[in-house]
Nucleic acid binder design. Structure first.
Lengths: 218, 218
DNA sequence: ATAAATATTTAGACAAAACTAAAAATATGT
DNA sequence: ACATATTTTTAGTTTTGTCTAAATATTTAT
């Protein structure tokens, strides 16, 4: 597989949200910063290779083969992200560009050894699940922290309110994107939450909780 | 720089033995498994970009810029080799193909962090020196063990006699390619050597020593 | 239901990097 | 020194992946 083919397969996978949703030519062109005519050409080639199902004007879905390829690329991408953060001190928001390159390296032995070396991680630094060698993984969903049930664990992946005041509050209280959060208890009276964040307990207001996004693996 | 351009620069560097030796079109074609006409085309392009000096029919040398590019690729290649051997349990003879891919990954931060993470290694698993960030490195030479002076340290990189008997001897005595060897003393009488190999002391005959190649960093 | 808007495909061209075959320059042997 | 052999370059194609512009299909709105 060429680099370009892999990029298309990955884009189709993500645009179809991991399900077998039909993806349109235009959506791929937008997602990949290219022209629809280029997409048509490539999609024909991928179809000839048995990686996608394609009928003129009808959009594209991945075949089983195509989905396996996509999962293998996603697996590599996310494992390398864990490596960059855990071993090379990258922060969670610096890793994407480099992982885009590393995901194309071809060596089954390397990626399996890397997986073991990292301790078989299940999620990447953005909270997204890492497919196992045979392509299995837990679905993950994004929720506001105040909507999560008691006992739920997730990774802090984003803010709804991006005002300076809120970001300062987070910084002051040592809450950062990438932190692991568990909901310990909720107060019915004011909707405030008792959480464990990076090992320490905290009590936060509903207002705070309703502005923090959590990535949760079911 | 494209992948292909980087491969040419690296090949010219290696064929020129790291010095500024002139390299011929045919030599590059042989070294890269391609045709001389393809080399001519690419060399013109590299010349336009200021990476090589080129005059028709006169062969090629790297410019200062080209040599810096070459050293940066060699640095990346060798650091990744150390990573694969030290962290992912590859053996020294399995790493080359994967490192050929990894050497093209572009991220200065990553390679510097990797360097630090590996403990700023000075030589790769084959005994070749790793250029520092600013392109400095010790020259390394290959010698038979029995020709090394007392006090010299090197890495065992090859055998002269590759008979089954000799290889069995090495295996039985726990001597493997990649091992670090220091010459402690030499007996004038029979030319035998006292060496330290992977931390333990050994006494080996001249016959053994004259069939083991050492890579030595001056 | 049909015209207008939007989406998709086709046709033809281009750049990068390779190739083959032929031409030109350099090197070699006697 | 000159004919021959070798090396290198040129000219013309090919493949991959892209593009623009034009043609065709589908969707939307009235």
């Amino acid at each position: 597989m060429t680099l370009s083919e892999e990029d298309y397969i990955k884009a189709i996978y993500h645009l179809g949200k991991g399900e077998n949703n039909t993806v349109t030519t235009n959506a791929i062109a937008n997602g990949m910063d290219t022209k629809p005519s280029s997409v048509t050409d490539m999609v024909k080639k991928l179809s000839d290779k048995g990686l996608v199902n394609y009928k003129k004007y009808q959009g594209v879905t991945l075949t089983v083969l195509g989905k396996n390829v996509a999962l293998s690329i996603v697996r590599k991408h996310r494992l390398w992200e864990v490596f960059l953060v855990d071993k090379l001190n990258f922060s969670w928001d610096e890793v994407h560009e480099v992982a885009e390159q590393l995901e194309h390296i071809k060596s089954e032995k390397m990626i399996d050894q890397l997986d073991a070396y990292l301790g078989f991680p299940k999620i990447d630094p953005h909270g997204d699940p890492i497919p196992s060698k045979d392509g299995e993984f837990k679905k993950s969903i994004k929720k506001l922290l105040n909507e999560a049930s008691i006992g739920v664990e997730g990774i802090c992946v984003g803010v709804k309110d991006s005002s300076v005041a809120f970001l300062k509050f987070l910084d002051k209280n040592n809450i950062a994107l990438g932190d692991t959060v568990t909901v310990i208890d909720k107060e019915e009276f004011d909707g405030s939450l008792h959480i464990k964040i990076n090992g320490r307990n905290m009590h936060i207001s509903n207002q705070i909780a309703s502005n923090l996004y959590l990535q949760i693996n079911e």
